[in-house]
């Protein structure tokens, strides 16, 4: 081989490839308007997003958006890419809302909150925690046990109302849930309550008759008080995958969801499916549940929520 012996072909090739890749990338970016980011990094981000239940299409969309944003960025380090992903995600969750609970509570008495969701997501526990918080804020609170279906649901809410130190209206197992709602509101009007929390039975969103029953509760409430309910909170289990999107869609059809509560976030589930829900339904996440204790309900913070995804 003589004179080429000292010549390192592979090195040269590597160098050329790098140059070529750079040129190709530059052209590519100019044409597509998107930054070319290392495949490995993108794969890792995709994995993080998908394993947090964000959903395939949304994950792909977010990555595309990030590539668009990164184009004008000089700093293409992984760290900065992830920061950009976080910004993108936080942006989805921070939706503008001119609804202010604190303001509304001052002007509506009693202030009616209806809590809905499918079975086992943590509705009753959430009500217990909410009652506790409103009570602590110095408000007079009453809860209505309109879950007359599940065995011992009444008893469960009763224990929570005792813990929170608030009153409860309940009827027997199998009673008409809308009559419980009616009585609770009547009682609240008569005895000057500030906040009324109505618990409802868990219902799978694809069960038409149960959804109709929910509609009836809502009608009865607004017959009592034209402005009621002031809030309808949809409780979602943070462990739930893509099905939560359908839950939100179906519940939105029969009630006007004003806010979301995401529960059971003290485990390893990230609850990423809410990005699609917030984006589609345009309703904010109001609270997150992080445990079974009465203090374990937090006001939602989008930055904290997003950074938990990358932990």
């Amino acid at each position: 081989m003589g004179i080429f012996d000292n010549f390192n072909f592979s090195k040269l090739k590597e160098g050329l490839t790098k140059t070529r890749t750079k040129i190709v990338n530059t052209i590519n970016e100019a044409v597509t308007g998107k930054a070319v980011i290392d495949d490995k990094t993108l794969d890792e981000i995709e994995e993080i997003l998908i394993t947090s239940d964000i959903g395939y299409d949304t994950a792909v969309q977010i990555i595309e958006n990030v590539r668009g944003r990164m184009k004008s960025e000089k700093d293409r380090t992984d760290l900065n890419v992830i920061e950009t992903v976080k910004k993108e995600l936080t942006g989805i969750l921070d939706i503008e809302s001119n609804f202010n609970s604190e303001q509304e509570i001052k002007t509506h008495k009693p202030y009616i909150i209806l809590v809905v969701g499918i079975n086992g997501v943590g509705k009753t526990t959430t009500i217990g925690k909410l009652a506790h918080n409103y009570k602590k804020a110095g408000l007079k609170v009453i809860v209505g046990a309109a879950d007359t279906f599940r065995a011992a649901a009444n008893e469960q809410l009763e224990i929570w109302s005792k813990r929170a130190g608030v009153e409860i209206i309940q009827k027997g197992h199998g009673a008409d849930p809308s009559s419980v709602a009616f009585e609770t509101v009547q009682h609240a009007i008569k005895h000057q309550y500030d906040v009324v929390l109505i618990d409802t039975a868990g219902r799978l969103h694809n069960k038409g008759h149960l959804m109709e029953e929910l509609n009836k509760i809502k009608r009865v409430l607004s017959k009592n008080l034209p402005y009621a309910p002031n809030e309808t909170l949809l409780v979602l289990d943070g462990n739930t995958g893509q099905n939560a999107i359908l839950q939100a869609e179906e519940f939105s059809k029969v009630t006007d969801i004003t806010g979301l509560v995401v529960t059971k976030l003290d485990g390893t589930a990230k609850g990423g499916v809410v990005f699609q829900i917030v984006n589609k339904q345009k309703v904010p996440i109001k609270y997150i549940g992080v445990g079974e204790g009465i203090e374990d309900l937090q006001t939602f913070d989008s930055k904290l929520f997003v950074s938990a995804i990358f932990e």
Binding site: D53, I118, G241, N243, G267, A269, G272, V273
Partner: peptide
């Protein structure tokens, strides 16, 4: 296990 569980099902 709830059939609606998402990605975290494997961990639990």
């Amino acid at each position: 296990v709830d059939s609606m569980t998402g990605q975290d099902a494997v961990n639990s």
